[in-house]
Design a protein around this nucleic acid. Sequence first.
DNA 1: ACGAACGGTAAGCCTAGGCTTACGGATGAG
DNA 2: CTCATCCGTAAGCCTAGGCTTACCGTTCGT
Lengths: 107, 107
Amino acid sequence: METYQSGDALGALGDATRRAIIACLAERPRAVGELADELPVSRPAVSQHLKVLKEAGLVTERAAGTRRIYRLNPAGVAALRDQLETFWNRALAGYEDVVEQPEEETP
Amino acid sequence: METYQSGDALGALGDATRRAIIACLAERPRAVGELADELPVSRPAVSQHLKVLKEAGLVTERAAGTRRIYRLNPAGVAALRDQLETFWNRALAGYEDVVEQPEEETP
DNA sequence: ACGAACGGTAAGCCTAGGCTTACGGATGAG
DNA sequence: CTCATCCGTAAGCCTAGGCTTACCGTTCGT
């Protein structure tokens, strides 16, 4: 499986600009320049963010002439989603009964 | 509803130490000192991270004597989970047909 | 009342990393 | 061949923010 994530995907999503890029790519694949046009940062900045996102396994890149078309990596996105899902479930499992409970500590 | 998130929860999870804190709290509620014992940072650092996490709606805090017991906030966690879920679904929806396709490039 | 434990906050240091400009390589058009 | 477009990378600047130490308020035990 190439569901790997070299860098940590959550760390990558910690940056607001990268989240904006992901949001843009969620609509449709885009070239680097297109992304830069829609964002308040320069093209090289976008390029650098795309590198991080690619290392995190969240996007893939494809050459088309002189342009590089970036798109979401469904596998990477799904992997992160599943990982979070598992975590949420386990985390909330231990608390779901506590949601209503006011207190009952072990002093 | 108090499912609000003043700060952005994803930004809060961007930091590795805060993720470690969340992971600790997923096991069971803890006091600040307990968390600091299990982490490679000082107690004030933990305290500062807890402030961020609380503002993000991910944890809640309760006084118990001189101690402050922190726990996950199921509502906040669930809110973030649902928000991501929606996003993933929409994002992957536009790509789902591409998942299988290896290539069909213009060489 | 006094002291100890617990933890929030202020002040300050210091690195990570996000942004820009400048440059160079690759590709396609004429 | 030459030029224009598109993009990745290097160099460097600069702020955000994570960490520490120091201090103070609060709470409980004796």
